[in-house]
Write a protein that binds this DNA or RNA. Structure first.
Lengths: 122, 122
DNA sequence: ACTATAATTCGACATATTTCGAAGTGTAGT
DNA sequence: ACTACACTTCGAAATATGTCGAATTATAGT
């Protein structure tokens, strides 16, 4: 369990964090807050307070807090105090990074993969 | 925990399965088996036997078996008996699906997102 | 039939996770 | 200073997970 690169350990922690339905729901909420079809204002629209998140989930505040801490520790969300409440959001770069992990083109060590794919299929 | 859509439940199970370092290593092995720079023969090169996987992980065969079962139950890998051994592989479509989940363009409900992104940044 | 190889199933055990309520901390308004 | 609001921290309890060795199943070769 301990002879893996930081890389795989860190990523496993991310996936573990997303492996709980409540946390995945939070994460998804934080990514899909932009109304479909409208311009996404990254700086504002993607922020939610802990309270807002808790309302949708219907679980105890202490449980919401626990889950948010897990998401934060995994490096999936950012938080910031704003007056009485605390804002949560996701950095768009993180989504790119995660998306890239499953990108077979990426895994194939760069570039000419679109080419290769076609070769295989022909 | 139970008032979530099948969708989110199923996906959470996938991420939970990937949330263990050993399983993530298996999964990664199964996706990156193609030698970088060469053509990826989907039908053959992406298959590994349980034994081959176990060797690299240095854990008891029964533990490997357990992890593979989890990956299978989550819908992440496919298996097939071939003689004495059992082959495991990942369907490329699955990688596309997972990659798409983190694709903010995708989340934003299709198409004109590349456009939108640029609008925001300008 | 016997043996070897490949993998799974079955307890068992230690450890981790999820969840809650109660108590605590920090901020803003009166 | 007091009160309300927003959230976190701290046990505690129930449940789930990761790991192994021993026993079992399935296949192939002799």
């Amino acid at each position: 369990m301990s002879n893996y690169s930081i890389d795989i350990q860190k990523r496993a922690e991310m996936f573990k964090a997303l492996g709980n339905p409540h946390r995945l729901a939070i994460f998804q909420r934080l990514t899909t807050c932009c109304v479909p079809g409208t311009v996404c204002e990254m700086e504002d629209a993607m922020h939610f307070t802990v309270g807002e998140i808790g309302e949708e989930l219907e679980i105890a505040p202490s449980t919401v807090s626990h889950h948010l801490k897990e998401l934060f520790r995994a490096g999936l969300i950012q938080t910031r105090r704003n007056g009485k409440s605390i804002e949560c959001w996701i950095e768009p770069e993180l989504l790119e990074q995660l998306s890239g992990f499953f990108n077979i083109d990426f895994l194939n060590n760069q570039s000419e993969l679109t080419e290769n794919k076609q070769k295989v299929k022909s």
